[in-house]
Design a protein around this nucleic acid. Structure first.
Lengths: 107, 107
DNA sequence: CTGTATCCAAAGAGATACTG
DNA sequence: CAGTATCTCTTTGGATACAG
């Protein structure tokens, strides 16, 4: 993948840079319904490994898409929620959702 | 990446399956403005290698997103254009375009 | 001009074991 | 529960050379 510095000045490229990787769109899709714990996310995204989920969450946190809140409890509880930037991706997810639905109906 | 058979029955996952890979969204974005030749596409997508462009185009052709038309000329001319399925992705690209624009304005 | 064929490097992903 | 640490394996991507 191109680094942010190498990216052409194209809005679509900017977007792909942030959420083009494999699982992120699915994570965002799940968080759009509200805050979720790590285990809930893992369960709601069949096939994702713990490592990939963790890596993706960290990366999205760094990109300012969502926030991570750790509760000092035993057993530990960690909640993930989209912040404003992540929320603003809703139209993209909606468009993909609609497209995917239409596509499946034509198969 | 999951195979089509393994994909969960989620519309977003279906969409990601078809256009989630690195360069495809950028190719679609370019073809949305109309038919383009191989060389034009390559020039309009800075950083893409010939191999990756070829591979992506073949894959998208197989997925029924676009068509490839070869003209029996010398030098050869090959034109790529979105078909109906590809065209129907316009809302997704538009949403990403708008998001990317807004994002850059806030940096 | 529009490819194909190789080869190699890098990134992404999966499995397993272990920990506060 | 929610991770981290490794170790592999696969997939993707990039570079170069060559061809119809």
């Amino acid at each position: 993948m191109l680094t942010k510095e190498e990216m052409p000045a194209c809005p679509v490229a900017t977007t792909v840079q942030l959420i083009g990787s494999k699982w992120k769109l699915l994570i965002i899709r799940n968080l759009l319904t509200g805050t979720q714990r790590f285990g809930e996310l893992k369960k709601s995204i069949p096939g994702i490994s713990q490592k990939v989920l963790t890596d993706s969450l960290r990366s999205m946190e760094d990109d300012g898409i969502m926030t991570r809140k750790v509760y000092a409890e035993v057993p530990p509880r960690v909640e993930y929620s989209l912040n404003e930037l992540g929320e603003s991706m809703r139209p993209i997810i909606s468009a993909m959702e609609q497209w995917g639905t239409a596509y499946k109906n034509n198969q």
